[in-house]
């Protein structure tokens, strides 16, 4: 290293417009590369260091805090139009470390690592003593609610049979005794009204996803399920540049099925979100 040049980083204000630009690139990267859970939005920039990079450019080492929004990652709504999940709904935050190369005015993510965690039960109950807390997605009541909701949705659906992609969140409500769930679905090559064995249905080559919210009320006369699903417009996904290292916690690992036969019929194009 030539003397005097040094390999020191420069410190930048966390609220500097350049830092914020890098942070927004990082959040955009998170939302484009997650395939389960919800979109996140920037909450706070914790730290930033800017390293010189030879032969040219700079590397931003940045730590950011994010908050979960109410938009599922499969929802095409731009994150700026998504509401932040409120404390009373048992909010989830993300802690992320990024390295972003800035060269010729362009940004390239070279490293990303995020951990997400829900707010503590104590914090939620402090602001809202009666609010239901997040429940494990494999809880018996949750599984039963999702199954009942998906069955009800498909029974009312004149188009494709939709299969479960993932359960995104669930809450056990004490009074009245009920279970609230949110889950993602995907269209298959089966017709909903004609399905006899759902295991034989395949996802469409041109994926069509939906997002459902459902409540199962446990009544003395029997369970009553209320489900609302939004089917998203299909759109071709452009391949995203991948970093050298990309680590995600098990909680945000891929849940979308891998390869599918390419000769399946294409999904019908839906103009705008379809609420069923």
């Amino acid at each position: 290293v030539p003397p005097g040049l040094g390999l020191a980083y420069r410190e930048l204000d966390c609220d500097d417009p350049e830092t914020e630009q890098v942070a927004m690139e990082a959040v955009d990267y998170i939302n484009k590369n997650r395939n389960r859970g919800y979109k996140h939005t920037l909450n706070q920039i914790d730290k930033v260091k800017v390293w010189p990079r030879r032969p040219m450019g700079e590397v931003f080492e940045i730590e950011i805090d994010t908050l979960e929004t109410t938009c599922h990652v499969l929802d095409p709504t731009p994150v700026v139009n998504c509401s932040v999940r409120q404390l009373t709904e048992h909010a989830v935050e993300g802690d992320c470390d990024f390295r972003v190369l800035k060269q010729d005015g362009q940004f390239f993510v070279s490293f990303a690592k995020c951990d997400s965690s829900p707010d503590s039960a104590e914090d939620v109950l402090k602001v809202c003593p009666d609010c239901p807390l997040l429940a494990p997605i494999n809880a018996t009541r949750v599984v039963r609610t999702v199954e009942a909701a998906l069955t009800a949705f498909n029974a009312d659906n004149n188009g494709s049979y939709f299969q479960l992609v993932e359960v995104s969140r669930a809450q056990l409500v004490p009074l009245p005794p009920s279970t609230y769930v949110e889950f993602a679905v995907a269209a298959t090559d089966c017709v909903a009204k004609e399905v006899t064995d759902p295991a034989k249905c395949n996802l469409l080559a041109e994926k069509q996803y939906g997002f459902c919210k459902a409540t199962l009320n446990e009544k003395a006369t029997g369970d009553a399920v209320d489900v609302t699903c939004t089917v998203f417009q299909t759109e071709p996904k452009l391949p995203q540049p991948q970093p050298d290292t990309y680590t995600l916690t098990p909680g945000v690992a891929s849940a979308v099925p891998a390869t599918l036969p390419a000769n399946l019929p294409a999904a019908a194009m839906v103009v705008g979100p379809l609420v069923v």
Binding site: C14, N43, I45, D46, L67
Partner: peptide, 27 residues
């Protein structure tokens, strides 16, 4: 801070450069 009249007091930044502002709420 008590200083002599002709000695400049150490200036401290009014705003800490990091962490930055909270946009929504802290959990």
């Amino acid at each position: 801070t008590v200083v002599q009249p002709d000695v400049a007091a150490a200036t401290r930044p009014l705003v800490r450069p990091c962490p930055g502002r909270i946009r929504h709420f802290k959990i």
